[in-house]
Simulated assay, not measured.
Amino acid sequence: MKTLKIAIAGAGAISEFHLKGWREQDGIELCAICDPDPKRAQARADEFGIRNVFADTETMLLKTRPDAVDIITPVNTHAPLVRLCADLGIDVMCQKPMTPTVPEAEALIEYVGDRVRFMVHENYRFRPHYAEVGNRIQNGELGKVRHARLTVRSSSVFDYGDKTPFLLGRQPYFGVFTHLLVFEVLIHHLDALRSIFGEMTVVAAALDRINPVLNGEDAAVITLRSEDGVLIVIDANISALGYPPLPTDRLEVLGEADTLVLDRETISLLSRNEPVTIHDLQANYQACFSGAVREFANGLRTGAPFATDRLDNLKTLRLMSSVYEKAGNPL
């Protein structure tokens, strides 16, 4: 197996989970990491045994010439860094959202063309509990699916007392985003639902702000319909006091033969006496990062298409943008 040289752009909070994913893969050399904060980059380098540390991406790429780059930086930096990789002939995986808007994503995709492999790190579809739901629907356990409802709850951006809310503590710049819940959180769920139900259109959307210190929305109700006619409702609130800081999901899928319910860590069919599947959500949190990394590494080695390549992810970005348009708050 050829060893792949991987460079990491960005050493923020999320990079820990990317790097753990890379460490799980065989035949990988983490050759370099960069971040504008040298201390932060050095800390990650020390933790994961990366020998080369840089303050900017271009210098890192020119000096180390990796096979591929994992971009884990704020969304407004994605397009310039992906363009740089394309110009240097280096394959790239980029954190979601690909770009702040659909036109910017379309321009980026056109610029890159087929010069390099380009995947977006959209990882919820790699979560084992969502993958199980999709597999059981595809295996026909529910018959024809007619209706689904996804409820998302957390206290990510509005917590008790004087504590700094979890999501704002980890990524404080989210507090100034004018588009927040759908743009940063539900985009994951939209992609996972696409992987389960196929392409969807937004029928209606309403947004709200519970925490008054935020600029963007922290609550949403969205109605969608799939190309196969499945009616899907998303009801989300990440300022829900009393809920855990990380989002908890409940997905109910109603078919003509049975109803399947994913409720946090459990998956069950309602009309059959069978064992309930129990997932370790903490393990699954890392598993989805590792799954996306594995998809990228395997695709580089085999030439297989990425499940979340730039063209597939553009569909998710368009769907997310359509939610804001329906809610009267376009990107």
Results as ranks from 00 to 15, higher is better:
87 D>E: 14
117 R>I: 04
214 L>M: 10
199 E>D: 14
106 E>H: 07
116 V>P: 02
145 V>K: 03
160 Y>G: 01
201 T>P: 15
156 S>W: 04
121 H>Y: 05
104 E>S: 08
207 L>G: 08
123 N>V: 14
88 L>Y: 00
160 Y>Q: 11
87 D>L: 08
87 D>Q: 06
100 P>G: 01
89 G>Q: 05
108 L>Q: 04
132 E>S: 14
138 Q>D: 11
182 V>F: 01
158 F>D: 15
120 V>S: 12
159 D>V: 09
124 Y>D: 06
99 T>Q: 06
140 G>R: 00
86 A>K: 07
173 Y>W: 08
98 M>E: 09
168 L>M: 10
171 Q>V: 13
139 N>M: 14
205 A>L: 11
111 Y>M: 06
215 N>C: 14
206 A>M: 07
166 F>I: 03
181 L>S: 02
212 P>L: 07
126 F>M: 05
118 F>S: 05
96 K>S: 02
130 Y>M: 10
169 G>I: 02
82 V>L: 02
137 I>Q: 05
199 E>W: 11
179 H>V: 04
110 E>R: 07
127 R>K: 13
117 R>D: 04
215 N>K: 10
100 P>E: 08
100 P>Y: 01
214 L>T: 09
110 E>V: 06
164 T>N: 03
146 R>T: 13
184 E>R: 07
100 P>K: 00
148 A>G: 06
183 F>Q: 09
93 M>N: 07
115 R>E: 10
189 H>R: 12
192 A>F: 08
212 P>G: 15
120 V>N: 06
143 G>R: 01
86 A>W: 07
127 R>P: 04
192 A>Y: 04
113 G>H: 10
153 R>G: 15
85 C>Q: 03
100 P>C: 01
114 D>M: 05
198 G>E: 13
130 Y>S: 04
158 F>E: 08
119 M>R: 08
145 V>A: 12
201 T>D: 13
142 L>A: 11
121 H>C: 09
108 L>R: 09
141 E>W: 11
88 L>D: 00
174 F>I: 00
170 R>I: 10
115 R>T: 15
145 V>P: 14
197 F>N: 12
126 F>D: 01
178 T>S: 09
162 D>R: 07
207 L>Y: 09
89 G>L: 13
133 V>H: 01
93 M>R: 09
116 V>F: 06
99 T>C: 13
86 A>S: 12
208 D>P: 14
216 G>V: 02
